[in-house]
Design a binder for these strands. Structure first.
Lengths: 197, 197, 197, 197
DNA sequence: TATGAATGAGGCTTCATTCAT
DNA sequence: CATGAATGAAGCCTCATTCAT
């Protein structure tokens, strides 16, 4: 990648990160392009230089979030630890990421409402990919008798729902630090899966 | 309540129910007053007769949903059954209600984003009330040694997140009926609380 | 048509007529919706109540112009006069209409540039219809030996070009009245067709 | 002219020619500076090196077209042929030029709409000059009894309108070649002027 | 000369809301 | 009570133009 292309990529990422946090805070429709630009000390026009339109910015932001999540899981999958530890790490990472990036996209933006056609498909595909990574861990755990047999789809969605909900109630000003809370949630969720012997 | 007042109340409820389902489907900002009116074969003007403005309609809809939930819990609280059964019933009812009414308000509408001042306070109070009903059941269960000791706030939020998430992934066209799924989710969530003796 | 529908139709026509004259004067792109509304002492919003968007207003204006031309020709076709008189009347009417309505659509708006898809097709169809009415008169004249044999398509386009050009150079402030000029142009154009015996 | 000046002049002409054809095709307002630059594999910035602004590019393009037309007429005026042949040649050249350069400026761009002040005056002067060259030929023809007496202004405008209209309907894919059509139109237009003895 | 990133004015469009009938 | 025409504030987006490198 040329220097220029790098610079452009960096700028795009900067905008995306900023957009994610404002949109999480105020909601997509209550966030104006002006808001997004202003937060970065840019003008609207500049944002449009990097993104076709507001919707495109949302799409690319969403995609980046999902891809980042998938990468995290893939990294963890490669580690040489037990299934339980892997799932544990995946969950903790997920929650900590939400908190750190202040991203409420998973709860605040319903892909079916915001996207259509190829864009929707692409988002749903990424979601599925992430979901199946979790499923894989669950199944592996069941197969190796570490986890009890469960309805994988339902349990996975319980896990996702519980994790994504965090952004709605966790406050950094509270008594618990993010990591503590992440590991606490993880611990409780694992109880659903653990053999009861 | 006079006949007229009754009629008005009925009409209001009709509008609210319709609004909830459209807003759940398309999102608040993608739903126009025209849409809401049209679905009921009314005109915009009529809706304004019953509700001060769009925001008021949202507020009253949200309130109605929460109050209905709270009533349900209260009813269950009064029943003469075990704590575990009570919590179980509350969760099942919550999920089935979401599915039946096709309401995605809990996930789709973040009160902090949509309301402010007294309205926000009133919504948050109702939420708290509902939350503390659940907390009460959890605590009661712990006190009576039916449930393991847990961080009540965290577990309660895990439960809420997992339940509310349902509207995002459950499809009535799928193989599982709503009640089945509700009881399945309930069963798994209870594992978090159950003593592991 | 109900009273209300009549009123709406009238208002639409009012807007269209006004739009035609402003667009002719300033050009489509130099005319703002504000301009069009202001000229009628309306607000932008009102115009949008009657027309989907600016382009739709252009389309309906263009269509109305063409339909009106076609009706005029049809009326003349039915009259009990000679072919030459018919063609003569058609040309005179065309020119006088341009001047009276101050419409420069034919020269100022190239359908291929402004429309596409079905709208383009619909405009081109109307144009064709008008063109073939003129062709019919030319052919009739040739068949009855009143006109000399000519390449119909070319002569028709000469006639159209010469007539439409009027809006570009005729000034009502000049020495010649519109009708005079219309009949003068008509007279000259007929020379192209007249037998030279 | 220095080598550098020559190079600059050449580049300017290149840009102008390219601009004329894009603007003819898409219209001035639908043509962006980006479009013009891209077609020449330049960047916007470069175009601005040669032309003050978009409007200046339009102006110079229009001027170049008119000057070229005037030069053509002047050349023909100097030829040692009959008045009729001169007018004939002028018209044929005019039409062939429009077709060859795909220039629809005469019909697509109304000077009154696009220019003002000195620029408008300068364009109108060139137009007048061109018009009076045609007038001169007509008058000469009348004086020498080759042409019938006519209202010169009207006939000249008929001729101009008929010629300029060509760009709107002539398609190079059609059955007739450009030269054929040019001479055909010329032939018909001359009938307006020819003595009918 | 050439580039491409940044700017900002201007125009289109939507839609909640009002109000006379 | 109901209607539908009218309003106008607010936000998206385009693109000519500038300018540092």
């Amino acid at each position: 990648m040329s220097l220029r292309a790098q610079k452009t990529a960096k700028k795009k990422e900067e905008i995306v990160k900023s957009a994610i946090s404002i949109i999480t805070e105020k909601g997509y429709h209550n966030t104006t392009m002006e808001d997004i630009a202003a937060k970065l000390l840019m003008t609207k026009g500049s944002v449009y230089y990097y993104f076709k339109d507001k919707h495109d910015l949302l799409y690319q932001s969403y995609k980046m979030l999902l891809e980042s999540s998938i990468n995290t899981v893939a990294d963890i999958q490669r580690e040489n630890i037990s299934v339980e530890d892997k799932l544990s790490k995946v969950m903790t990472a997920h929650i900590e990421y939400l908190i750190a990036e202040r991203s409420g996209f998973e709860t605040g933006i319903n892909p079916e409402q915001f996207f259509e056609g190829n864009k929707l498909k692409s988002i749903l595909d990424l979601r599925s990919k992430y979901a199946s990574e979790i499923d894989r861990l669950i199944i592996e755990g069941i197969d190796s008798n570490v986890f009890a047999p469960v309805d994988v789809k339902i349990v996975r969605n319980i896990i996702l729902g519980a994790m994504n909900w965090v952004i709605r109630w966790y406050s950094p000003e509270g008594e618990m630090r993010g990591e503590e809370m992440a590991s606490s949630i993880t611990k409780y969720l694992l109880r659903i899966l653990k053999q009861n012997d």
